Computed example of a mutant assay.
Amino acid sequence: MRYGLLLILSLWLSVGCEDAINVDLPTSEPKLVIDALLGFNENNGNPITVGQVKLTLTAPFFQEETPPAENASVTITDNQTGQSFGLLESEPGVFNLGLPDLQFNRDYTLEINYNNETYTATQQLKGSTLIDNLEQGDSFLFDEDEETEVKVTFTDIAGVRNHYLFSFGFGNFLVIEDEFFEGSQLTFSYFYEDVEPGDLLVVTLFGIDQDFANYVNLTLIQSGEDGGGPFATPPATVRGNIVNTTNPDNFPFGYFALGEFDTKTITIE
Rank of each mutant, 00 (worst) to 15 (best):
G4K: 00
L7D: 08
L9Q: 11
W12G: 14
W12C: 13
D19K: 15
I21N: 09
P26L: 15
S28M: 13
E29Q: 14
P30E: 09
K31D: 11
V33H: 08
V33M: 08
A36H: 03
L37Q: 12
L38Y: 02
F40M: 12
N41C: 07
G45Y: 06
P47G: 06
T49S: 11
V50R: 13
G51M: 04
Q52Y: 04
K54Y: 02
L55R: 04
A59G: 08
P60H: 08
E65I: 11
N71D: 15
A72N: 06
V74D: 02
T75K: 15
T81M: 12
S84E: 15
S84Q: 14
G86Y: 13
G86N: 15
L87H: 08
S90E: 10
E91T: 10
V94Q: 06
F95V: 02
D101T: 10
D101V: 02
F104W: 02
F104D: 06
D107F: 05
Y108V: 03
Y108E: 01
T109D: 04
N116W: 00
E117M: 03
T118A: 08
T118E: 07
T120S: 06
T122K: 05
I131K: 01
I131L: 14
D132P: 03
N133V: 03
N133A: 14
N133K: 13
N133C: 01
L134T: 08
E144R: 06
D145E: 15
E146K: 04
E149D: 05
T153C: 00
I157K: 09
G159Y: 03
R161H: 10
H163N: 15
F166E: 07
F168N: 03
G171M: 03
V175P: 02
E177M: 05
E177L: 02
D178H: 01
G183D: 09
Q185I: 11
Q185D: 08
T187F: 02
T187M: 10
Y190I: 00
F191Q: 05
E193Y: 02
E196L: 06
G198D: 00
D199E: 01
L201I: 01
I208D: 04
I208H: 07
D209L: 04
Q210I: 09
D211W: 05
F212A: 09
N214H: 07
Y215C: 11
V216Y: 00
V216G: 06
Q222E: 14
E225A: 15
T233E: 09
P235D: 13
P235Q: 12
G240D: 13
P248Q: 12
F251W: 14
G254S: 05
A257Q: 15
L258E: 10
F261K: 14
I266Q: 10
T267M: 12
